[in-house]
Amino acid sequence: MSLVSRLRGLRPRPPAQRGAWDVETIRRGRLSLVLAIVLGLAGLPLILLYSMLVLSSFADRMLSGPDIFEARYSLDNWRLLFEGRLAPASGQTYTTRDILMIIANTFIVALGVTVVVVFVSVLAGYAFSRMRFWGRTRLMEFLILLHAFPGVALIIAVYAVYVWSLRFVPRDWFVPYTVLYTVLARAALEIPMSIWLMKGFFDKIPWEVEWSALVDGASRFTVWRKIMLPLVRPGIAALAIFAFLAGWEDLIYVHVFLYPHVKTLATYIEEVLGTGTETAYLPVVAAAGTLYLIPTIVFFVATQRLLLQALSGGVKA
């Protein structure tokens, strides 16, 4: 084979056939395929197990695989759940639980965390983004450090403060106080990262927009309220969702400070399971677990795009 023909043989197909590929689009098709396979494999166990959970909540037994074809499906488990009964056999010695109350409690904690986190982060995020004050950079670094501590690591200290603070609380105020304390403690865990997130959103708004409003006759506060806040609305939404889910999903803080006098879905499920898997009627627990999952799934599906923007540090104004 001559050199020329060998070269010709090695020559790539003409660009017209391969399509006009440049650095950005190169091999995009193949990359997407690989990504899809990897993510699909990684997601498979999650998807399968969660599907099992959801299916089990309608079945007469806890499903584990091939038995999905043998089980009988009905809404019985959900009915039992909302009736506050933990098993179909009424003769058993279970005390009934007020599931609506438990759902309401979960909402109170989650919304409380949301309100506190959003309120603090929006104000602090603006300050960190737009104001110069002593120790600003140090504080920012410190916030990152705070974020590095998991809630579990802090629980002893938080509990110590809790016990110490109880002496100032009148008996009648005990329950509302513990709810408030849980909300504040849980919110405090979310706030450092939320401030950073919010700062990112404020940073994206050009100074000129703020200056324009000042020159147009607004006070600093009016600028914040009428110009800055509407522009960071996507940020606030993302923040609120994160905070809500954090409050909704929390087990440790709720367990330490609210159990057993105030129950949330997390502690409820824990309690039912905790009574011993031998006696617990698992399909009802599966229903409770599904119920517990719903807000998470709804939020993530509804706000995927928003969350991506938030995680990449803000939105375009």
Binding site: V209, S212, V215, L231
Partner: peptide
């Protein structure tokens, strides 16, 4: 005063 910026700084919302 009236002020016009290079990037116009209109209120996007």
């Amino acid at each position: 005063v009236g002020l016009v910026f290079q990037n116009y700084a209109l209120y996007p919302h």
